[in-house]
Structures are given as C-alpha cells and as structure tokens.
Nucleic acid binder design. Structure first.
Lengths: 333, 333
DNA sequence: ATGAAAGCGCTAACAC
DNA sequence: GTGTTAGCGCTTTCAT
C-alpha cells in the first residue's frame, strides 16, 4: 500500500480511503488509485484489515465428515451465501470425536472467525465448548445436528415426524416387526427420529420389542457386522429404518451378501440425500432432507447474528421439512 | 495478552515467548503463563501473528464442486495432513466457472494463504491466474485436475492408461462400438482418458467412429437429454466409458427409463469413487481413483513447497494409479 | 479533499 | 531470564 501511495504521490490514508470507496475522496483520485491498484496487481492484506477492524470476514463450518452427501450439499448451501456476502469459509472435520470438536472450537476464538456453523459429533455429550464461544460473543448456530437443551440457534428438520412417518409407512406396507438403526444415543436427530418411530409403533398397536432401537457404532466393518448379527438373529426384523445415510451401504451389502431380498423379506428406509437412491438395487426409499437449504438457511441465520449487533439469534429455531420418497425398497410385496 | 502480562506481572514479551515455548524462558514462568492462559481462556490472535510472521498457517483448496464423492474424499485427505501440520483449510468452489476460479485465486494473494491446492474447472482455458500466484511466491499444486503445459506441481492419476484399460475391458467383454463420454474438451483428465480410450480401439482394430468421444456439457437435465439422444440414436453404442462420476447417474437413469439392459444391451464403466457402486442396479464397474491419497499426497507436496524456502516444487509430478474394479455393468453376456 | 499519526495484537531484535 | 521497543499493513480520528 505504501508503494501504491508513493507511486501516486498521495498518502496511504488516501489510498486506503479510495480503496474502500470513501465519500471523502474525489472521484478523480479514486479512479487513479483503483487503476494503479489493478495495474500493480495490488490486493489488501486481509489480516492487517482484520486486525484493525476486528472482524475476519470468515466463518467456520464444523462437521463430522465431508464424505457424505448430506454434508456436502449443506456445505454447498453455506458456501453459496458466504460467497454472496464476501465471506470466506474454513472447514473443520471432527471425525465424530468430541475431543476434536472441542479443540476446533477453541481455535475459532480470538477473532479467527466471525461466526461458526456446527453439526455436532455423535460423541458430543456436553455443550461447554459451544457456550464458551457464545460467551465470547461469537455467533454460533447448529445445522442438522443440534445439541439439545442449550440456547443456541439452529436449523433442523422435522425428525420426530419423519421417524413417525417412516414407521407408519413400513407398517402400511406389511411390516410386523420393524427396527430403527441409530448411530448414537446422544445425537438428537437419532433420538427424535427413534422417538417418532416408536410412537408410531405404539399408535399402531405394535408391541415395541426391547431391541426396537439398535445402536450401530464404530468403524464401517463394525457396523457391517452389527447389522449382519441383527439380520441373522433368530428374531430377524422385517423392516429397517436407518437414521443416517452411511448406514444404507451396510444394510444393502449385508442383504445382498445374505441373499435376503429387499423388499420381499425385509423392507428398508434410510434418512438420506443419496443421489444414487433411485438407481440402487432395489431403488431405495428415503427420507430426504433439504440439505442445501439447511446449509443456506443456517448461514443466513448466522449472518443475521453477525451483522446485527443487537440481534439475538440465540432462540431462533428453524425447522425445514424432510420428505419421504417412496421407492421399491419399502414396497408391499 | 497485555492482560495476561499484567495479571502475572511480567512483560508481554515474556508471555509471548513463554507461549511459543521459547528456550530463553524458565520452565517456571512458562508453566505459570500456560496455566494463566488456560485459566483465562486466552488464545493468541491469529491475525496479529499472521501479520507479524507473514504466514497465515492456512491453505486454500479450490475445486469445482464439493457434492461429489471424489472431491469429498480428496478434501478428507488434504484436511488430514493440514490438521497434522496445524494448518487451517479454506474451501472455495468454482462451480466449474473459469471466472469464479480467477476471482478466487485473486483472493488468495496478499498473504491470505500460504499455499493453494486446485482442481481446475472444466472451463479453464488459460493459466494466467495460476502463474500469477506463482509469481507472488505462493506455492500452488494441482490435484487430479491439472492444467497442462505449465510448470506447476501436480498429483494426478494414470489417465491415459486407464482410458486404454477401460476400452480394452469393454472390447474383451464383447463391445463392438463403445463410446467415451467427456465433460469438457479443455480438461486434461478427460482428454487423456479419451486418448487412451481411442488408442485401445486402434490397437484392437476397431474403427474409431467420428463420434467416439462425446462431450456432455451443461446442467443435469441437459446432460440427461444428451445421453438420451445418444442412446436412442440409430447407431446406438454398445458400451460407454464415462469420464467422471457425475455422468454415472444420468447414464443409469436413461437406461432404466428406456428399459435398456445393462450389461446385456449396453455395458458401462465410470471413472468414479462412488461408494454405492457395488449396490447399484446393476453393480457398476468403476475406474476407482485413490481420492483420499491424491488429496493427502497433494497436501504433502504443497507443504514441502511451503516449508522449504528453496525447494522448487514446480516440476514435481506425482502419478498415483487408479484401478479398474470389475462389476456387473460391464460383464460379457 | 488530503495527510499525519496512533494503534489493532503480536514477535523479535536488542538491551539489561 | 526478562523487559523495552519497533513495526507487520491497515483504518481512522483529527488536522489542515
């Protein structure tokens, strides 16, 4: 910037003002400065600006994993609004570990970011790290995976309702003993979906077996063998509702490997935005969440919090509806 | 930091040195400082450090889209090494637009990032924006999607070879008139794969039709109808090699909709890391790239460039092998 | 309309 | 082993 100023024989202050299009600078000088900046390929040092202005123009997105259609689409949604606002997006992966999540949020302090969007890990059992950010006046919002019981803004889906719907759908299509596959007993999305699922069983006079909700934890291989155990057990379920996308693969693989026919011997529904659902064998019935919209809405909410000093976003809860898309995997035989 | 210093009745310099574990500080003071920092929940202001040190400890990843298994996995790989190095990752999406890519790279200057990893858009026809970064001594490397003919480090796959292999595989399984689906005539990965494909036809004495390589551009709908046109044409191919993951959906959908049997009436191979390939209808033969490894390797290469001042990474080219995984979609009938 | 100068929070060279 | 101080590149009063 100093060079620019010297080149043009004006002060750095003038250059700075010209670049930020201040009205105290004459059109002529502005033009001159802009032109010279372009010619010399000059860009503001963003960190000097951040230091001065105490805002970074960047947000953090914290999520369990990125190799998942839902989260990818959500990132797209977030990015689309960040871009429009001229914000930068830092991506952090917790890999479903609470400890990672804590250290990530610790990094988000001291002005590194102006706000954070988070989908909590399946291990998160405490919101201290989140409240800690709030205490430092860093706006934060949940998207999809909230931590319940804290005053934090969130964009979620109608999980209970969809859990309910999925069970009703299975029952209507002939299931007598469906089960629900969870991935964590501390994850609100799983719990609410499971609650809806169980409520539907009750309402339809199906006795809820003790193992109505099964937790599939661990590595891919572990999940695979848990599902295999389930499906080879004496009292095999005749329907499955899987709570998250990544369970779909394992369920299908086990069934294929066991030559268990979907939907004849077992019906399957998965909460998922898998693009390939229609071309799977058989086409998979999904509860499809508006992933892009969730990301977009959460980002918009966050920016409201960032931009309006006095706006209290803490109690905002936006619920976006998912839809059940019926395909072959859950069809009555 | 000043508060910390005051609290402990030492100077800010001491605190700074203690926090960076300088050897000129006694263990006792270090312990005191660390303890107080933890207690007061203090974190360094990263941008003040960046300004001072002229390094941001962050890298940029620029890619066409994130809702794609390949890119998601690559991000994972990149993130895994960035995390280990204590670096932060900014994600930028070009949405396959050259103009976006240019403005993104312009934002990466002036110290915002210490290096950039890029998979170029399908529209990129010029490397000026990339060379521009190099001129400013910002290390940059291609991963997967390189721009050919410029002296920039890259981590790529054996595209020609895999194109060749895919054609040979189709021919061995009975195809007489396979075609290759590209998404851009300026994308090196597509061109090299197509070249290999054509070379194999030649070597196997199959006359190359004028429409051996077909460019599928535009929105999902446009791609869909282009493929539909192809498959309803009088001279329908009996085999398809699709150059990128996102073409898989359209090919399968068109075939399903036309009741065209895969692999009986047409065989299909896709360059893809689609996790669901084995459970598609029918299971899809893929050329699977080592996506995570590509990201990881590219990041490691970039960090070599970032950390060693004099190391010239510009001429590094690392080629990682993809593998053909045979499944039903390409089977001899 | 333009410029001089202070200071954002940190680090490093130098003094003690 | 610890402290003083200058300055990273920018923005913003306050003068002129």
């Amino acid at each position: 910037m100093r060079e620019l100023a010297k080149e043009l024989k004006v002060s750095v202050a003038t250059v700075s003002k010209a670049l930020s299009d201040s009205h105290e600078i004459s059109e002529r000088t502005k033009k001159k400065v802009l032109e010279a900046a372009a010619r010399l390929n000059y860009t503001l040092n963003p960190y000097a600006s951040s230091l001065r202005n105490k805002k970074s123009k960047t947000i953090a997105v914290v999520l369990p994993e990125v190799a998942d259609n839902f989260f990818s689409l959500a990132i797209n949604g977030i990015q689309s609004v960040a871009e429009k606002k001229g914000y930068h997006v830092l991506i952090y992966l917790s890999h479903e570990k609470f400890s990672n999540e804590k250290s990530i949020l610790a990094e988000c302090t001291s002005g590194r970011v102006d706000g954070v969007l988070i989908a909590v890990s399946s291990e998160t059992t405490d919101a201290g790290h989140i409240l800690n950010l709030q205490r430092q006046n860093i706006p934060i919002a949940f998207f999809d995976r909230e931590f319940e019981g804290v005053a934090v803004a969130k964009v979620i889906t109608n999980d209970f309702e969809c859990g309910y719907l999925s069970a009703v759908h299975l029952i209507k299509n002939g299931c007598k003993k469906p089960v629900f596959l969870s991935i964590s007993s501390s994850l609100a999305i799983c719990n609410n979906r499971a609650k809806g699922f169980k409520a539907a069983l009750l309402d339809n006079k199906i006795t809820i077996p003790e193992k109505a909700v099964i937790e599939c934890k661990g590595s891919k291989e572990q999940v695979y063998s848990q599902i295999k155990n389930l499906l080879t057990s004496i009292n095999r379920p005749d329907g499955i509702v899987a709570s998250v996308e990544r369970l779909a693969m394992s369920v299908y693989l086990v069934c294929h490997q066991m030559q268990l026919s979907i939907p004849n011997e077992i019906k399957v529904i998965v909460f998922s935005t898998l693009e390939t659902a229609p071309i799977l064998n058989p086409p998979l019935t999904t509860i499809t969440q508006p992933a892009f919209e969730i990301g977009k809405t959460a980002a918009e909410l966050l920016f409201k919090g960032i931009e309006k000093k006095k706006y209290n976003m803490v109690n905002e809860t936006i619920m976006l509806p998912s839809v059940l898309i019926q395909r072959t995997s859950s069809q009555m035989c």
